[in-house]
Design a protein around this nucleic acid. Structure first.
Lengths: 214, 214
DNA sequence: TGCGTTTTAGTATGAGCGTTCTATAATGAC
DNA sequence: GTCATTATAGAACGCTCATACTAAAACGCA
């Protein structure tokens, strides 16, 4: 029993995601949001609270719509296909995005890294979800013999995560297919089981990087 | 034949690097710089121009002092040692930095990615220098037999670059030794030559990621 | 038809921003 | 000692920012 809203909340949130994704939190002004969403400042504040809470809603929307869907899609397939599909999807979307917006979560991770931020749990949690996806792929692959046992499952999963993050950064500043495909192809090759490898999974003592520690 | 400056320009630039490194360009205010350097706004503007030109000087200083020195140090050693030393250095410094500032160039890359920026050539050029370093390591290693020939040198170098970028991102939001060491250890293992591998260096057709293209 | 409630529209506000301006102070040259 | 030149100190400027405020408008219900 009151005046109804004149806008579609989902559409407004999509517009907010577009703004924040492209320019980040600080560089997006309320005026930008007003321009992109079409509503007034009063409506924005009334419906979504202040800038921080709107950003939170936009980030949540991005994570569920963007990353959650991708995770769900590729956890259905075979282990190596999961990793490959996920990374190829990221590469293709990156190369097809003329604005080179990268990943909103990675962007937010760097923007909020040095401030005490309410967003850090969301960001770290999202990275943890992705790492868990890779870990699941690796474990299934080590079990069915498609993924190498020469390294610990956690290390391989973190390797995947690092390459994903690296691709996200490189795609923004140097969006060339050769660069992104090359990095991903090498990662995928490194995951494959070698025909002569033993059956024992090695401990993750990280002797490769720190050989002088026992 | 005029009043001399009362400050040490190098010390002031170091303070500017500290500010911009920690908070980025936008989030660093002139007042922050005044507080950190001890100069007045008039002296800052008189000596270094506006905020953008000061940032340029700070970024140049960071690149030469931080990255250039590291590149020089590790291009003297054996191929795999070069890659390992470079990445271990980055990991150790990341874990020892309580502020988790990451890499100023990576931070700047994401901050300026979507604006038309005078800084992009500096940033992309720095990434290209690092990639060239990795490529040199890989080529020398493929020549002396320490690095795998199963993948093209450029792909392996880009793989190193991607992991480096990934480590830089992860170190800011999840600065745990296990994560960073694990990712790097897996990368280093993937570079090693396998005892049974052929002598031919494969073309970089990236069939691992894009198997359905000829 | 009026009332209570919520949404709109437009404007105002106070803080912070990058930058400039006005003096004043410190030097070397004459 | 005077002058030209440069560096300092601090206030001031114009602008943009996020946000709050004031009315008017649009509904369901009595």
């Amino acid at each position: 029993m009151a005046r109804p809203r004149e806008f579609d909340e989902d559409a407004v949130l999509d517009a907010a995601v577009a703004c924040f994704w492209r320019h980040g939190f600080d560089a997006t002004s309320i005026r930008d949001l007003i321009g992109e969403t079409g509503l007034t400042a009063a409506s924005l504040y009334n419906a979504f609270g202040d800038k921080r809470s709107l950003f939170r809603l936009a980030l949540e929307r991005y994570i569920e719509g963007g990353i959650g869907q991708r995770l769900a899609r590729y956890q259905e397939v075979s282990p190596l296909e999961g990793v490959r599909g996920y990374l190829r999807d990221v590469v293709e979307r990156s190369l097809n995005d003329p604005a080179n917006k990268g990943c909103m979560v990675v962007n937010a991770a760097l923007e909020f890294a040095t401030r005490d931020s309410e967003f850090r749990p969301m960001i770290a949690g999202t990275f943890a979800r992705i790492e868990a996806f890779f870990l699941d792929c690796v474990r299934r692959g080590q079990h069915d013999g498609s993924v190498t046992r020469a390294l610990a499952d956690e290390d391989l999963a973190r390797h995947c995560l690092a390459v994903l993050m690296g691709v996200r950064v490189l795609a923004r500043i140097r969006p060339e297919r050769a660069v992104l495909d090359g990095a991903v192809a090498a990662l995928l090759r490194s995951l494959e089981a070698r025909p002569d490898e033993g059956l024992l999974i090695s401990r993750n003592d990280h002797a490769e990087i720190r050989p002088d520690t026992p």
